[in-house]
Amino acid sequence: MTKIVAITACIAGIAHTYMAAANLKKYAKKEGDEIKVETQGAMGIENKLSSQDIEDADVVIFAVDTSVSGKERFVGKKVLKIGTSEVIKDGDSAIKKAEDLVNGKKQ
């Protein structure tokens, strides 16, 4: 089991942020991974990751089309950066890429 934390954010902050969050959760569950997703959208930051969440995580996914708010929280972590559209199109690969990053496989 991989422990994943993720941030999703899109340009308008209306739809893609939340679709990407839903798809990451869906495919992490399928893989039997644990995931927490912080959304940075039109409603502001929701489900904010705690420093403990981040410390415990094996890998971080930034599913963003814009800049991440509070990026400094993730210094020293393994980070997969990917667009929201890619996550919406193929959530399965996004999760697998994150797992590969943990296992040290080449991207």
């Binding site: 739809a15 942020t17 679709m19 839903a22 798809n23 959304t39 039109a42 409603m43 919406i88 959530g91």
Partner: peptide, 26 residues
């Protein structure tokens, strides 16, 4: 077709648009 105000309006409605967006992955 979703419409949101630039000067962050009603959070309840934003929440529903967000919830609906998430459901589209199901």
């Amino acid at each position: 077709l979703m419409a949101v105000s630039t000067n962050n309006g009603d959070k309840e409605h934003l929440k529903m648009l967000a919830h609906l967006s998430g459901k589209l992955m199901d």
